[in-house]
Simulated assay, not measured.
Amino acid sequence: MRQLILDLLPESSPTLDNFVAGGNAQTLALLTEWLAGTRTDTSFCLWGEAGSGCSHLLQASGFAYIDAALDPALKSAPTAEQLAVDHVEMLDETGQIALFNHFNRLKMAFGMLLTAAAQPPAHLTLREDLRTRLGSGLICRLQPLSDAEKAEALATQAKERALKLTPEIIDYLMRHAPRDMRRLSAIIVALDQYTLEQKRAVTLPLLRELLNQEANA
């Protein structure tokens, strides 16, 4: 499904610069400050609903990244000085013990642990000692972007690529494409390439053509 768009995703690898903050500007500023080492907190926990951008920021941190949804026992977690663990609510018993030990190791070594979850640490179904550790650091909620913020971000990204998108085209994209910003941004990349290949300006029929081709791929 939408194979071309998925193939183009590496061009939009998560960074702090391409994170669309929306109402999360203060959280992004605090995270940037923490990543720069200007704070002494061992851990920073981001939480929010799916699509709010937690995974984007963890991958953008430059830390060794582990997704507990794929590795609930944290078997692949390295003994890095900077560790990012996504979806901590998915940790199994072994993974919870491992994260507890990583936290203690990083605290002793003045390292840094960045985590993300669907809820704040106090509400997670985890070992009490792990919840306490995660709750002792910085905790911020990421708010999902509104449709208006997504539309504004798409218009900005298109402008940076010299693509002229009318409000009608952006509205169609918002109604017929995946709603998370990474996929929407990937469609802008694909649309840019498609217009160059077809030597055609961006129109609603051209956008429909691209999305139909991807849906049938």
Rank of each mutant, 00 (worst) to 15 (best):
Thr42Ala: 14
Leu70Asn: 06
Ala117Met: 09
Arg131Ile: 03
Glu89Leu: 08
Leu196Phe: 10
His176Asn: 15
His56Leu: 10
Leu113Arg: 10
Gly137Thr: 11
Arg105Tyr: 13
Ala98Ile: 09
Ala162Pro: 05
Leu35Asp: 05
Ser43Gln: 11
Arg2His: 14
Val88Leu: 06
Arg105Lys: 11
Arg200Cys: 07
Met108Asp: 15
Ala215Asp: 12
Phe110Ser: 15
Asn18Ile: 08
Leu99Ala: 07
Leu196Val: 11
Glu49Val: 14
Arg2Ile: 05
Asn101Phe: 09
Asp7Phe: 12
Leu58Trp: 00
Arg105Pro: 13
Ala151Tyr: 04
Thr132Phe: 02
Asn212Arg: 10
Leu184Glu: 00
Pro120His: 03
Ala190Ser: 07
Thr132Arg: 12
Ile188Ser: 01
Thr27Ile: 14
Leu46Gly: 04
His102Pro: 04
Ala98Ser: 15
Arg175Ala: 14
Ala73Phe: 00
Arg208His: 12
Thr132Lys: 06
Val20Thr: 08
Leu138Val: 15
Glu149Ile: 06
Met108Pro: 05
Ala84His: 03
Leu184Cys: 06
Ile97Ser: 03
Met1His: 05
Gln193Gly: 04
Ile170Thr: 02
Glu214Asn: 02
Ala153Gln: 03
Glu160Leu: 14
Asn104Gly: 05
Arg182Pro: 00
Pro167Thr: 11
Val20Tyr: 13
Arg179Cys: 08
Ser12Asn: 13
Thr15Asn: 06
Val88Asp: 00
Leu196Trp: 07
Ala151Asn: 06
Met90Leu: 15
Gly137Tyr: 03
Ser61Gly: 07
Ile170Glu: 00
Val202Trp: 06
Glu81Asn: 15
Glu49Ile: 15
Lys159Asn: 09
Val202Pro: 05
Ala217Arg: 10
Asp71Phe: 12
Gly111Leu: 07
Gln82Ala: 15
Asp17Ala: 15
Ala84Pro: 05
Glu89Pro: 07
Leu113Gln: 01
Ile169Leu: 03
Val189Gly: 03
Arg183Val: 09
His87Ala: 14
Glu152Met: 04
Asn216Val: 08
Leu57Glu: 08
Ala190Gln: 00
Arg39Gly: 10
Pro205Phe: 11
His176Ile: 08
Asp7Gly: 09
Asn104Phe: 10
Lys199Ala: 15
Arg161Thr: 10
Leu126His: 01
Ala64Arg: 02
Leu204Asp: 04
Glu81Leu: 13
Leu74Phe: 06
Asp7Thr: 04
Gly135Lys: 09
Gly95His: 11
Ser13Asp: 07
Ala50Thr: 13
Leu113Ser: 09
Ala215Glu: 11
Val85Gln: 02
Leu196Glu: 11
His87Tyr: 10
Glu128Lys: 04
Ala80Ile: 07
Leu83Asn: 09
Leu134Phe: 08
Asp92Thr: 07
Met174Arg: 01
Phe103Arg: 09
Leu124Ser: 01
Leu124Asn: 02
Asp92His: 05
Leu206Val: 12
Arg200Pro: 05
Asp17Gly: 11
Gly37Asp: 13
Leu130Thr: 05
Ala177Leu: 13
Pro78Met: 07
Gln193Phe: 12
Leu138Glu: 13
Phe103Gly: 12
Gln143His: 15
Glu160Ser: 13
Tyr194Ala: 02
Gly51Pro: 13
Leu124Trp: 00
